[in-house]
Design a protein around this nucleic acid. Structure first.
Lengths: 259, 259
DNA sequence: CAGTTGTGTCCATAATATGGATTGAATCGT
DNA sequence: ACGATTCAATCCATATTATGGACACAACTG
């Protein structure tokens, strides 16, 4: 949880943190889980959650006891997406990717030093990975989407992240030694697309391509995931070309996500 | 702003209020506007906005000075919509409605004693009303969507709202005397669809049909808007039938929005 | 260039959120 | 069947934290 409250109102920071955690999993989170992840005390978390729920920002499933994003978030999200017409712009590409490859296709956005999965389109192939779904966050440089984006970020920003790699990578530091990441970034710049050979979860492979905003910055990514046998050498070129083709169609059509 | 902070954390209530106000207009709101609408003092609003922006929940356009919903809202909205697959379920109906009628079509949700516009699909007819768009809220019973929903709400809830109609209707009380609303509700129950003969804005007509959730409650609505000549008597039956047909397709397919 | 309107910042004060402690409910293991 | 364990909910004295009056500044306006 590397969020530095900037000034004043740290309640805002706490609330935002809780919302983010709840928003990571569509099925929601339990109180203890939120206490653990947020680092706050139980009474505080409980009170904030209750208040947020009474405002409609969260929902509390009495049955399972889990907290999920509420209807007001849905409403606001609907308004926010007027500025980012993802369904219109990215969805068709995901449909084509999933359709032509059979794998599951994803659309992610860069948020600071993270990527967040925004859209998912299931493929037809019967074995599917559920590591990635809407709301899942990875540090930049981890997983195919984050690698595709980081590879095309300005060098000084890249170095900033790599300089303190273990901290940045957090729980993924083990499976992603700095040298491997650097090599992967280099490879990505060469090929134009990234390959994640099951580093996040063994056997669960992925490939990604960066999508650039109007200002030419890598702000989004398309990616595919599936099991290892579907990402063998001979198929990679085909998948990579497809990803880059679709990324190219979206390039420049989405506003930069400032902030 | 009829929001009663339930317990504890009233900052949450303030924050939620601000987010709601910002979320009413896709183009965002200015600081003064937010101060006026929220009833808070300027420094407080400013501090909260700044904090919210630093968390990515809002964006601050330095150029226009207006505050808009930020990328984090988009992300969370994307996750929340996994629970309410509006694009999959409601969008096709809107496309058909707009396509077959030429008018603009809308999908709204009931939130407590309000309706909130969630989706908009522009029609082809060259004169279009922009009274209704994503994020716009009306008191239940005002505008065609709110009338369609209120008409099928359990009678005691209906009476609860009508009992204190002027307060509930707020700025719309003038154009919507209680007697007119009662008649309109009755009419809606008879026909199955609602008609708003330009009560919100003269010349801007609308028609709506309620959509019921799995529990059989009127929780959503489809509606059409356009100018008066397009809603003359002879065309209303056609539009009403179309609305009800599409509403019927969606009925029961959307979860109830608890809270 | 004085008047107006809107934005941004400071800081003493008071109000508000905090969290340790307690109780209650539910699930588990033997 | 029952103590042990885990999780949820609530209370309330305390001090941390948000508050808003006052001030400063910038951008228009007539």
């Amino acid at each position: 949880m590397n969020h530095v409250p900037v000034q004043g109102a740290q309640v805002v920071s706490r609330i935002a943190g809780l919302l983010r955690i709840v928003g990571r999993k569509p099925e929601g989170s339990s109180l203890v889980e939120l206490v653990r992840e947020s680092g706050l005390t139980r009474p505080t978390v409980h009170r904030l959650l209750t208040s947020l729920a009474s405002e409609g920002l969260l929902d509390h499933s009495a049955r399972t006891g889990s907290w999920v994003l509420g209807p007001e978030i849905l409403l606001m999200g609907s308004v926010a997406s007027a500025r980012f017409p993802l369904e219109d712009i990215a969805r068709p590409s995901l449909r084509r990717l999933a359709g032509e490859t059979g794998e599951s296709a994803f659309f992610s956005i860069r948020r600071g030093a993270e990527t967040v999965c925004l859209l998912r389109e299931e493929g037809s192939f019967p074995v599917r990975s559920f590591v990635l779904h809407e709301g899942v966050r990875f540090p930049l440089g981890v997983a195919s989407a984050g690698t595709a984006i980081l590879a095309f970020v300005p060098e000084h920003e890249q170095e900033q992240i790599l300089a303190d790699w273990p901290t940045h990578a957090g729980q993924f530091a083990d499976g992603h030694p700095e040298a491997v990441v650097r090599a992967s970034l280099h490879q990505t710049r060469q090929a134009g697309y990234s390959v994640n050979p099951g580093l996040v979860l063994e056997g669960s492979w992925g490939m990604g391509a960066a999508v650039f905003d109007q200002a030419g910055r890598p702000a989004w990514a398309l990616s595919l995931t599936g099991i290892e046998p579907r990402f063998r050498e001979d198929r990679r070129e085909f998948l990579g070309r497809l990803l880059m083709e679709e990324a190219h169609r979206i390039n420049g059509r989405l506003q930069p996500a400032t902030g």
